[in-house]
Amino acid sequence: MLNKKRPDPLDIWSDQVFDALLAADIKHVAYVPDTGHARLIERAIEEPGMEASVLTTEEEGIGLLLGAWLGGERGVLLMQSSGVGNCINTLSLVQNCRFPFLTLVTMRGEWAEFNGWQTPMAKVTAQAFELMDVLVYRAEQSNEAVKIVSAVADTVFNGDLAAAVLFSQRMIGRKEWAK
């Protein structure tokens, strides 16, 4: 009651990350939603000149970003850890065509998780990327998320490389199941 409306902590670092994506000249945001990406998705939809594309399955985003790159534009794929396994074969496009590939992944199944069905993929999310030669970075603290995303975007787009940033579930916060 004292303090009417404070910004959600998730919104604060998400806004910072979104600004880092803008600064990196990202024009395409392809996504399968997750609570931890909600703010980024909202911002992408609202941003003039940015194409936000909802996917039916995560690997579609790899094709979409390759197409955008063929057309001269940069993009990012937003997904949750459960979607990373869906991407394995399609990541061969990244290796075979060597185009800059950036993905931001919200972790489920690793901290204060209610739904154990998320855990098997969470345990191997990083390894799944590494199997396909995607560099893996991890943000544990909300105050480091923007620095990591900005640095990884530089690495990816300056080096024609592929990299994922995993946002830890602890940083995203406990999902409230009672609501």
Binding site: I62, L64, L66, G67, L70, G71
Partner: peptide
């Protein structure tokens, strides 16, 4: 390769161009 990706690549390209 990347079987199943032709349409999404075309989509990304059409949005960028």
């Amino acid at each position: 390769g990347g079987m199943g990706s032709a349409v999404t690549i075309g989509l990304g390209l059409s949005l960028a161009q």
